[in-house]
Design a protein around this nucleic acid. Structure first.
Lengths: 207, 207
DNA sequence: ACCTAAGTATACCGTCAAGTATACTTTGGC
DNA sequence: GCCAAAGTATACTTGACGGTATACTTAGGT
């Protein structure tokens, strides 16, 4: 049975992602990717001209998948403290998710060979979230622009980076996420996030 | 001319480090390492039984070199604000140094195959600095233990992680350090560090 | 002086994987 | 129904690299 077009392309991307994440760029073999995608190497090369191009396509594809998790949903409600806590909690959870961690490690591993891969990935995730936070502070809380940006950076620094960095280096237990719930799960402790949000908001309003 | 013993071993470690950092584990070839160490592959295998063992030796070796940069020197003076600013500045500088960044990327890239490598590296660097900060706060400023730890984590989160993460992903220009000066160089802006230290100390003293 | 451990020089083996070649089959638009 | 594009099946080429074998040289303790 043959499956064509976008369906096949998606299957290749998905299989390639799994294999790259599991083995890293160099140890990921095109033979294995073809097998997991339930197709042949010849077809692989019909869609992606080289292993490098396939890799870059994966980074882009994953970037899209991750970004989709990082919207600021309307159902977080009108209370800004609460909405910010949920948003930050969900971002933290998404970033310490083992699939995100492995993707980060993969792009970092190849940062020498594919500098754009790592930088674009970073910008698409961290830059986007930072912008969304700053925009929220500006629009909903009338915080002036430069203060809003600084507050957003500060908030991310306190909430995200410590646990994210630890997870990156494997110093925390792995986190597996199953559902697509918009609410943070039990993997994040909201208490310190509430404290950081409250403090940041207080400081931002005071200026 | 033959060079023996520790001299040779160091040359191998140093050459291997360069090659691993430049090419990553898989693309680093034992032939190239032997050539750069100005010896032969046979001798390589006399000192390190396999590529994997050599890699782990490199991680340990580099961990030692980095840790040596992260002392809390006496000549930072008696003013705690000032000393903390210098210490944090120097730590930040050391961690965004391109050699550190490349080493982090290398251990992260192989975190799947060598989980202990990444975790030990992380603990040896971030854990140690966090402990030294907390100890300083406790001993010099009489901050209670749990508050001191929290304050140290918070301080690192604000000062280190944002720039470090950006550097890791290649979103900042590379930093090259030449001298072994104990003072932070022009690569770090002390102003935000002063602000974060002041705020952290104020909060820690208030509790 | 000499003997052993350490190091050198160089060739070699086996394996694995990127990418290609060749011949065949299926699909869908016309 | 036919034909071109897309996909399949499988074998092959080529090169790299981890690790070993063999034969030789040097240094240093006694």
């Amino acid at each position: 049975m043959q499956r064509r077009g976008d369906d096949l392309r998606d299957r290749i991307l998905s299989a390639a992602k799994d294999v790259f994440l599991a083995h890293g760029f160099d140890r990921a073999s095109m033979d294995l990717i073809a097998e997991k995608a339930d197709t042949t190497k010849r077809t692989l090369y019909a869609h992606f001209e080289s292993k490098e191009k396939l890799f870059l396509a994966i980074v882009d594809y994953t970037r899209g998948l991750l970004a989709a998790r990082l919207k600021f949903p309307a159902d977080y409600g009108d209370d800004p403290d609460h909405a910010l806590v949920l948003f930050c909690g969900r971002f933290l959870e998404t970033m310490i998710w083992n699939r995100s961690i492995r993707m980060c490690r993969l792009t970092l591993a190849e940062a020498g060979r594919f500098p754009d891969g790592a930088a674009l990935f970073h910008e698409a995730i961290f830059g986007t979230v930072q912008d969304r936070l700053a925009t929220y502070l500006r629009e909903r809380l009338a915080v002036p622009k430069s203060t809003a940006t600084r507050a957003a950076v500060d908030l991310l620094g306190r909430i995200l980076y410590p646990r994210f960095t630890r997870a990156l280096f494997g110093a925390e237990p792995e986190v597996e996420l199953h559902d697509d719930a918009a609410q943070p799960s039990e993997h994040v402790d909201l208490k310190p996030i509430r404290a950081a949000v409250a403090e940041t908001l207080r400081a931002a309003r005071a200026r």
